[in-house]
Design a protein around this nucleic acid. Structure first.
Length: 421
RNA sequence: CGGUGGUGUAAUGCGUGUU
């Protein structure tokens, strides 16, 4: 069982879900080994983290069908799979069945729930659970603190986050790198670069060693704020400290060059990353394609698009949306449509952004009939039109001089509980 | 050290001073 679990773990890391199916089928056919909680939980946890909730649930069900009784660790993994997907009601239902099985929630369960509240945007519920945990005088460990710091930072409540950090320190708890990183990310989102730098100095004075995430977050923050010199300085700093900049660091730089329309610099950075042998995947490819797309370099974007396919990375929804957007802005409607077809043929599912892009592309090119069709199709696919959808539609109808129809969309927006901004 | 919890990167509309 141990050996097979290690094998399964490898497949989980590589996200080879079908290969896991085959392996488990074979193990069961041989019948010499019976998989246990650890083996099943490895798959459930991995799938949950990868956002493959259905995959996780399938395994949870399958293990029970095989007569394997889930333990606390497995229940926690299932709760986390739902929680990360923002499916809080279902997470709570699993918590119930856990209790029904006579298992007590442990401190992992609690911080899993805190993050789940965070993902579901249920800030107040998280705060009250956290306070109850503190009141109970046990169970508040660094991960629980980290979950709360992340939640506050993502909600833009930086002062609350700072307050909590000070509270930890006052209580003799030293924040670890993950805790500090949550604050840096929040500061980055808020554009509070100088404060982040001050905190970074404080982190080091406190004797907490920055990690890869710290550096990539700082680089991302500077890049996003348009401070490329600072971003590059952090890049050099981390190298000086013996860290090897990873895919996240490079992608942050690429993203800056995309907004700055500096595609040559981006191309040089992309080249450097490859030369250093730094592993990278679809996100970095899409960032590079986005650079070319924003700069209107169609040929280069197409070349990178082909390159990623050849490298064994099938383009995902983000890449297709980006390519379609580029073609639309370049008025290459045929190519845009061809890409959308290719996407469907490749089994890549369009999301709201893809449809919004199509609607905008058609509308801007005077093809309202196709924009309307995309608008329909989007809803048929079960996707909720959002503000971007409506404003792209309103624009399109406006450009087509369909004024009453445009105004009507404004009304539909309200009816669809999509508040105009 | 066979399994569970917190942190980082990419795509869409409008607007933000010159179509």
């Amino acid at each position: 069982v141990y050996s097979y679990t290690i094998l399964i773990r490898g497949l989980v890391r590589a996200r080879q879900w079908r290969a896991i199916d085959r392996l488990v089928a074979e193990i069961e056919r041989e019948g010499r080994v019976v998989l246990d909680n650890v083996a099943f939980c490895t798959v459930i946890a991995g799938a949950g983290k990868a956002g493959e909730v259905e995959e996780a649930l399938r395994w949870f069900q399958r293990m029970q069908e095989r007569g394997c009784v889930p333990d606390t660790v497995t229940f926690n993994a299932v709760i986390n799979a739902y929680g990360r997907a923002g499916r809080l009601k279902e997470a709570m239902a699993v918590l119930e069945s856990m209790a029904g099985a006579g298992l007590e929630p442990d401190r992992v369960t609690f911080s899993t729930l805190l993050s789940a509240f965070g993902s579901a945007g249920m800030r107040d519920e998280a705060v009250s659970m956290f306070e109850r945990m503190q009141g109970a005088g046990q169970g508040v460990d660094l991960v629980a603190y980290g979950s709360m710091l992340d939640l506050y930072a993502k909600a833009g409540e930086l002062d609350e986050a700072l307050k909590l950090l000070r509270q930890m320190q006052a209580g003799g708890v030293s924040p670890d790198a993950a805790c500090w990183n949550c604050l840096f990310h929040g500061m980055g989102k808020a554009g509070r670069v100088d404060e982040a730098y001050a905190l970074f100095a404080e982190m080091r004075e406190a004797g907490c060693a920055p990690d890869q995430v710290t550096y990539s977050t700082l680089i991302w923050m500077c890049s996003t704020a348009g401070m490329i010199d600072r971003a590059l300085a952090v890049f050099r700093l981390m190298e000086g400290e013996g860290f090897c900049p990873d895919e996240y660091c490079y992608t942050a730089l690429l993203n800056h060059y995309a907004s700055a329309r500096q595609w040559q610099r981006a191309a040089a950075v992309f080249q450097e990353l490859k030369q250093k042998g730094c592993p990278f995947g679809e996100v970095t490819y899409s960032a590079m394609i986005n650079v070319f797309s924003k700069a209107g370099r169609l040929a280069e974007a197409e070349a990178t698009f082909t390159e990623m396919k050849l490298a064994g990375h099938p383009p995902n929804t983000v890449v297709y949306s980006c390519m379609i957007d580029m073609c639309g802005k370049a008025r290459s409607l045929e190519r845009a449509v061809a890409l959308f077809r290719e996407m469907l043929g490749a089994g890549c599912t369009p999301n709201a952004v893809t449809y919004n892009t199509l609607i905008d592309v058609f509308g801007k090119n005077g093809r309202m009939a196709q924009a309307e069709a995309a608008f329909q199709e989007m809803r048929l696919a079960g996707l909720q039109p959002d503000r971007v959808t409506y404003s792209a539609m309103i624009n399109g109808r406006g450009q087509a001089e369909l004024y009453p129809e445009a105004i009507q969309l404004f009304e539909e927006m309200r009816a669809a509980r999509c508040q105009p901004d």
